[in-house]
Design a protein around this nucleic acid. Sequence first.
RNA 1: GUGGACGUAGCUCAGCUGGUAGAGCACCCGGUUGUGGUCCGGGAUGUCGCGGGUUCGAGCCCCGUCGUUCACCCCA
Length: 419
Amino acid sequence: MKKEKIQAPKGVSEYVPPASREFEWVRDGLITPARLAGYSLMELPVFEDTQLFTRGVGESTDVVSKEMYTFEDRGGRSITLRPEGTAGVMRAVIEHNLDRGQLPIKVWYSGAFFRAERPQAGRFRQFYQVGIEAIGIDDPAIDAEVIAIADQGFKSLGLKRYRLEITSLGDSASRAAHRIELDNFIATLDLDEATSARAKINPLRLFDDKREEMKKMMAKAPLLMDFLSQESRAQFAEVQEHLNRLGIAYVLNPHMVRGLDYYTGTTFEFIHEDLGAQSGIGGGGRYDGLMEQLGGQSLSGIGFGLGVDRALLAAQAEGVVPKDSFTSDLFVIPLGEKAKSEALLLAAQLRNRGHVVEIAFGERALKGAMKAADKSGSKYVVVLGDTELASGSVELKEMSSGVSKSVTISALHEALSTH
RNA sequence: GUGGACGUAGCUCAGCUGGUAGAGCACCCGGUUGUGGUCCGGGAUGUCGCGGGUUCGAGCCCCGUCGUUCACCCCA
C-alpha cells in the first residue's frame, strides 16, 4: 500500500535549493545595512504569551482579532505564534532590563512570522521578515536613519521600482482631536454595512478603500496631518529634511493606514510596483506608548519590518537576482576507496584555509563525477586516483577553459589562492 | 472569512466532440581503458492532486475534498 504523501501546511513559504540561495541573498542583503549601523541581533521565540499581542498590537486590529495562530499548550497557557516582531522585542527588552542600560537599544531580528490569512501571491501563513528596533531615544534623526537603513536594504538588492511613502500620525492628542472630526465627517456619509463596521473599528481605514466612489467621498475628509501638534509637525519636518539630505526619495501619503495600533508619529511604508495586490514590501514607524503599554518604562521607539518573501518576488520581477551566486572553488573527484579517504583529508585542509571544496561521493563513473563538478559551478577540479596518490601531485583543471596543469598536493592551496 | 480560475512525468506544458497518456527540458546509462559543458544512441518515470458519482468506458462531464492562483478584507 502506498503511503499518502504528507504536504506542507497550507500557505507556508518554503525555500529549497537551488532557489533558497536567492532567499538567502535577499534576507542577508536586507539586514546588512542594519548590522553596518551597529544594530545587534535579538533571537526571540516564535511563540509568545497571547496577551503580548492582544495588549501590544491591539485587540481591534485584524491581525489580532482574526489572523493569529493561537492555541493552548499543555499547561493550559494561551500561546500565539508571533504575527509581527516588535511586540516580542519590547517584551524581551523589558524582561532583560535592557531599558536600564545604554540608550538607544538597537537590535535586529530575522525569522518566521505567522498569520492565519487566506494565502495568495506574496501573502503566506508563515512568512519571513527582517526588522530592526531603535528604542529609548526620541529624535527625528533616528527616524531618518531607520528609514534610510530599510531603504538601503532594498537598494542593495538593486530594487528600483518601489516607492517610500511617509506620514506622521502625531501624538495622542493630535490623533484624538482628528478622530472626533473624522467620526463626525464619516457620520455624514452613506455607507454600506461592512464599510461602516470598518469605520467603527478604525475610521482611518476608509482612507485606504480601493473603490473609486469611496475615494471620492473621502477626498474631503479631514486629514490627520492637519491636526498635528506644533511639536509633531516640527519633528516630522525634521525627518523629511534628513531624508532630503540623504537623497532618499519619498512621497507624503496623508492617507496611510497601518494595521497595527501602536504606531505614532513618523510612519512609513515601502511599496513595490510589480507585486499586484500584496504590494507592501516593508513598513514601520514610531511607537511611543508601546513599551509602557507592555509594563515597561515609558520609552519611545521606532522600527521596521521588511518582508523577505515579497522582496524576493520584487527582485525576481525586476530581474535583479544574481545568477550563480554560489560556486565552489574546487571539486575533488576521488577514484577508489583509498583516494576517497585522501580526498576527505585534502578537502578538510583546504576548507580550513577558507576554500569552498566539494567532493564527488558514491560510485559514479568519472564522467558522471565530472558532470557533477560542472553543475556545482566549481572553478577547478582535481581527480585523485592511484597515479596521483603515488606521485603526490595532481592535475588541477580549470573548468572554464578546460586547461589543466600539474601541481603538488601541498601546493594546491597556493594554486587556488592565486587564481 | 467571501468570490473567480486552475491542479497531467522532477520542471514547463500538450492531450481533438469522453475510448484506459505524450513533447521539450532535466535525470540515468553508453559512444573502448581516468575527465564536464556540444553532439549521437539508449533508458526509467506518472494509480492524469485525492475521494465519490454519471457512463459500456473519464485525464477530459458532475459533486466533494486538499492544494495552488487572482481579487476582496487585510498586510510583510
